[in-house]
Amino acid sequence: MSIMELNGGSVIAMVGKDCVAIASDLRLGNQALGLSSNFQRIFPVTDRIYVGLPGLGTDVHTLWEKFRFRVNMYTIKEEREIEPETFAHLVSSTLYEHRFGPYFIEPVIAGLAKTPSGGVKPFIAATDLIGCLNFAKDFVVAGTASSKLFGMAEGLWEPDLEPEDLFETISQALMNAVDRDAYSGWGCVVHVITKDKIVTRTLKGRMD
């Protein structure tokens, strides 16, 4: 029995044209037994950064509270909002503190970074459970359906998708991936982050 697969769940993030999207399923289970179909594992870090925490359910809560605390401390000390890349390193070092007794979470980060000219630059990243960062230009995946998500995303994703097209792409990638994964599914939530708004949609999924 793998701890990473005890509660199930998957997260994916994708880059679009001046936008990013992050999405996950809503299942929480105990191995094959489904327990909840509204388990939140994506959290807002700032107005422009979201983090997804697939893995062991109990660590989702612990780690999110830890990140919230550290981001608050950062905001107070620095008197400014944290940037996505900085947050990614915060995630990485937090996880690496527990190198030999890790949290069983593989975080996915999606956000919009501010550029000097006042614009925004899409940012996504993912780490393994001990904080090895993966900055990708296209998409990142994690969780029990990760191999299926890789297959879907590799087939559907293309560069410079507009927010609405990015929403459709990430939704199709996620839904079809979790439908082939016994440990993920039971509905999905998708966040599309653009310069001036965040659109959050909850999707109905197969309940089997």
Binding site: M152, Q172, M175, D179, R180
Partner: peptide
């Protein structure tokens, strides 16, 4: 596991 969900989507038009 990479290909089958893609086929579900593109051949069977799942979802």
């Amino acid at each position: 596991s990479l290909v089958q969900p893609f086929l579900d989507n593109q051949i069977y038009f799942k979802n």
